[in-house]
Design a protein around this nucleic acid. Structure first.
Lengths: 346, 346
DNA sequence: TTGTATGCGTTATCAC
DNA sequence: GTGATAACGCATACAA
């Protein structure tokens, strides 16, 4: 069972190697009869062009690198987030006959996007979970300067016009807090994520602006910070419990923290719906698994992955090069965690 | 900013191309002085070997294909399952300088593992979520016959000795049901997954054997079937509710179905802990998000991914070829859903 | 210890 | 329409 090469097909079909290539690459001047002859020979031999040789000859790997942050056994980024985006990317790439090279990037090792490009392992890349930390920005800037096809997802950098697909986190946050305000809540705490993510900043703004637009004074002690994990939400509950007399609603920057918080506050005797309203972010599948079901802000992660792949493919295939930024719309999803039990009883 | 090739380095360093290769591939007879000279030239030029050309020359892509089942917008396989295994694979591959080529395989399109191998896109592959359906078995058998490096995860095929990494699902199931029995429950229903997955069969056996080992008669009407989604569990609750007078505990084949069931039964007035005990499977992160927290069977998914990658790498690097099967141990995790409220009140 | 020469399987540019 | 052939950047067997 040796490997079948182009020359084998050429010999069997009685044509030259070049003709075989023409058939497989659909190059124009070609007699139908010859084409069929070649195709038949290829079928008989079960010929499959060697992708490696093709890549080498064309100088294109046919791969798109997807760079995901990675800590063994610790999922900073939730699996929901991760797999939705990945699914969107995968769909778009498959449609365009590109392969997805998944690259786990541990936070401690230095980024080296340029090297990856030079090695030609991929023709373009999508960077998930980038952070605003020293080194990262510079590497991405270099990618940009060299006009390598790339796209960031869910992260924007102040003062740079990197290609990126993000969501309207300011609006999502503003809407979420506005909902709470409209429902009559006034003392609204905010459980934010790490500040290295641009989302955190945007959401903070949305939170603040919503409050001020309702004429409510900002209280810095209403602002808490976790790291997007359920556990961190649980831990914050310890602090928050001490001032629950002065809080009647909480907006959390993602669902997992919201749930951790809910569980933690429960331990301290505070119940969602009775003692406070709660709203999460991401609209992940866990929102419907908890009791009461969690109101949340839906983020079109799948679509964002799709668009990011499209941006990179356009850069590769159509030579698009000018800065591209897009913010996809988010949707507020109301569930039970933002309703007073009182109301239901009325 | 043109691409730097080996010859550029050779010229600058005043050596031959072969010597440059030797330095980069660490080929033995090599004077330290020459090495440094080459390294310095490479550094100066920012030389990075072209992975494409390397692959072509060696006939090895350096990629491992990971085949995952895929339905747009529908995650049959839970994201937890998926990302844990992927993480394990990624870790092991990174350690061995292999890349991970993620391949989404939609169920409707015919499998073509052989073609993928022939095209040399990857040197070995790991198949996730294979099912016992016509076509699948034959394709894998062909891989096996041609002794291509591959490994299945979480699926075994009756009558074949395919390379695979699985978990002790019989034992997991047996232990889970035994726990319920030891706790005094006798009328134990089983919510299983689709029969195309070998796990389902194994778990069914474990369930049955546990019951019979306790001298309990099997009731076919105690057995329900979902598709591993939360929704399917919710739907099954409709049927199960009709006979809850004759059921005092439920064992579900995964956590999401367990939670869906729990929610559905809730709608019908049946509460975990008060009216029945519940135990799930997978020990995913949602177990701790629900109230009461869900007892479950922990499956070492990350480890399984690691081992599967190891198996494939061993086949590639060390030529291991004899059938390899391994079942990793599972662990029963007791939480609140298997405790009677009665007991707590006592 | 290092240089020379061949080949990997395509694509693409010439000729014919 | 089709056949020859250079080029792609590297690994490696063989020569020196």
């Amino acid at each position: 069972m040796t490997i079948v090469r182009r020359i084998d097909v050429a010999n069997l079909a009685g044509v030259s190697e070049a003709t075989v290539s023409r058939v497989f690459n659909n190059v124009k001047p070609l007699r139908e009869e010859t084409k069929q002859k070649v195709l038949e020979a290829a079928r008989q031999l079960n010929y499959q062009p060697n992708a490696l040789a093709q890549s080498f000859a064309t100088g294109k790997s046919g791969n798109i690198g997807v760079i995901v942050p990675y800590l063994p056994k610790v999922n900073i980024i939730s699996t929901h987030y991760f797999s939705e985006i990945l699914g969107g990317i995968g769909m778009m790439l498959a449609k365009n006959n590109y392969n997805l090279l998944l690259i786990f990037q541990s936070p401690q090792e230095p980024k080296n996007y340029i090297q990856l490009f030079n090695s030609q392992k991929f023709d373009g890349c999508i960077i998930l979970g980038a952070k605003d930390v020293p080194g990262e920005k510079e590497e991405i800037d270099m990618l940009h300067q060299l006009s390598h096809p790339y796209c960031l997802v869910n992260q924007t950098f102040e003062g740079y016009s990197f290609h990126s697909i993000d969501a309207e986190h300011y609006k999502g946050s503003f809407d979420a807090v506005s909902l709470l305000l409209k429902k009559g809540f006034r003392k609204i705490a905010f459980l934010n994520g790490p500040s290295e993510y641009s989302n955190s900043t945007e959401r903070l703004k949305g939170y603040q602006d919503a409050l001020t637009s309702f004429g409510i004074e900002l209280h810095s002690e209403w602002i808490f910070r976790g790291n997007y994990s359920r556990t961190s939400g649980y831990q914050v509950a310890g602090e928050m419990a001490l001032m629950m007399d002065h809080i009647d609603a909480v907006f959390a920057a993602n669902d997992r923290m919201a749930i951790g918080l809910m569980q933690g506050l429960n331990q301290h005797g505070y119940t969602v719906g009775r003692d406070y309203a709660l709203i999460g972010y991401d609209d992940s599948d866990v929102t419907t698994m908890v009791q009461p079901q969690l109101s949340s802000v839906h983020v079109p992660l799948f679509e964002m992955g799709k668009r990011a792949a499209e941006v990179v493919l356009n850069a590769i295939l159509k030579g698009h090069t000018k800065p591209f930024q897009e913010n996809l719309p988010v949707t507020l999803i109301e569930r039970d965690s933002t309703n007073h039990l009182m109301e239901e009883m009325a």
